[in-house]
Design a protein around this nucleic acid. Sequence first.
DNA 1: AACTAATATGCAAACGTTTGCAGAAACGTT
DNA 2: AACGTTTCTGCAAACGTTTGCATATTAGTT
Lengths: 330, 330
Amino acid sequence: MVNIKEVAKAAGVSASTVSRVLTGKIPVSAETKSRVLAAVAQMNYQPNAVAQGLKGGRLHTIGLVVPNIRSLVFPAAIRGIEDTAEQHGYTVVLCNTDENIDKERLYIESLRRRLVDGFLFSTARPGHEYLLDLPDEGVPVVFLIRQLGKSVNTVVLDNEGGAYEATRYMLGRGLRKIAFINGSLDLPLYRHRYEGYQRALREAGVGEPDKLVIHDISGWDDGYETMTEVLAAGLRPDAVFATSDPKAMGIIRAIRDAGLQVPQDISVMGFDNLDFSNQIDPPLTTVAQPFYEMGVRACRRLIHLIESGRSGRSKIEVLPAQLVIRKSVI
Amino acid sequence: MVNIKEVAKAAGVSASTVSRVLTGKIPVSAETKSRVLAAVAQMNYQPNAVAQGLKGGRLHTIGLVVPNIRSLVFPAAIRGIEDTAEQHGYTVVLCNTDENIDKERLYIESLRRRLVDGFLFSTARPGHEYLLDLPDEGVPVVFLIRQLGKSVNTVVLDNEGGAYEATRYMLGRGLRKIAFINGSLDLPLYRHRYEGYQRALREAGVGEPDKLVIHDISGWDDGYETMTEVLAAGLRPDAVFATSDPKAMGIIRAIRDAGLQVPQDISVMGFDNLDFSNQIDPPLTTVAQPFYEMGVRACRRLIHLIESGRSGRSKIEVLPAQLVIRKSVI
DNA sequence: AACTAATATGCAAACGTTTGCAGAAACGTT
DNA sequence: AACGTTTCTGCAAACGTTTGCATATTAGTT
């Protein structure tokens, strides 16, 4: 790769002049400018970003830390992040932590050595509070999808509101005994969904159904087993609110395998609106998260933080959820 | 961040000595070594990777170029890539091209400026032959999932064999009139799947069904529409071989919406074995691709290329497909 | 016409490493 | 005891930029 000195020689100027033409900071005569530009074009010169990075202390790179890219909630958000990063001339480095805190720590260390400009985390959960130290050390950080306290910039869904609306909708359809099959309460997002569900029930004067509020359920298989046990125990809810679409899929399978029909016998409400959720049978009624948009917002905010030199107090941005009605609720 | 000079001062040696202790290349007396190590530990010194990169000409980074991370085939492969990269001390930069060649070119340019050590491409297709120039310019490159000629290192599935086995299986179940709903023949992988299907039919002495071999179908919605038209035209295959799981999902929906049952009336074979393929109703019989493993292999090969200084001829590695039998074929 | 001000350019240092070269010290050999 | 090796360490250059400072040129003012 050709470097700035060779361009300078070809144009008959010094390296500094070439640099000044390219960065455009300081006046350069029109004549030399065009001569330099011609040389740059002819030699197809591209400044070495690593040298620039060493000089400037940053490399226009952001670190994206997620638990697992195979989880279906991330790809869309990542896409939003990557697109905005690209538009602003940033590059995205991907890190999967498997919820493993040591792996996360190593990644952070490794990326800081590489002078990443900032971090985007979707790995927040109790035990990861040390992440909150990063901003204090001057490292720009934005949290995404999952939150961890109020003291850091975050982009999340209105989980409480989404769950509230979904529950209200089911109540409005005459369903009364609504089971709630939820993820781990360690994650605020599941806590908030639970609170939304409770609020709707309370306002409608309906009590929480006995033995039908179950937390700590994690994927489709877990959902399947849980629902199978529920039905085997003779419990028979009018509806099940699954707080993620994969859980909902497993639950629907369990209901079918028990010889019942969705939604005729039991309605099922999901949460997420993953890409395939309207492809399954029956198409899933669910609460949509604007994943792509969340990625875009988080990335924009991070870039703003980076380029403004870390000003301003941190802010939690809450995006609205949207109920999408299909056929799995009667 | 503390730099090497400060460590040197603290240990009472020169920066060179610190560097030598850390890289371990040249003998250093046991005594100074321990003194340096103590200082390093105490000050928590981490070498600046960008400075090392500038000096050494590479940054231990690989560029991963995919059409779209939202497409369900990539996340597992990416996971395999990322895991192996991490094990070897490499970092992965993610690029989505949307099959757009200009975007791809810009990414390549940008990453080369950043001194990436090599590229992993899943974007091969006609028109992208210029990618083949990169190895000639000394840039390590490995192709993955999609291939583009024999002259470059590649990791792909045995698409022909997978389709052959799947077709043979259906024939063995007594199915004769097997529709073939395929992707674009521009992509060798779809061409090969077609060839496998044809070979199995030929060996069984069964002809290709009239009007039931359809190419250029791309996602679930396209699959749905195509199958709806097929049925509306009064065509009634015994089975449909969809060359991707999403197409299969759309096709199953179409069959159901036409009042028929899968597999009692029409069997459906998929291809990919995406994560959710055994969650749908009926659980999908399909051809599994070892996505994760492909990612691992491709990444290993790239790292080998990088660290061996680009020796050796290029090789195409073909991984076996595996038929996974569930309930969508009778 | 002389002086100040503005404009345009180059030199050299700096970013944080690694590494060739050379010198110093310790050791072994005859 | 003199010399050649070996072992260890530091200096300084290099990687490719950007940028403060100094200088040279030009223009502007009186």
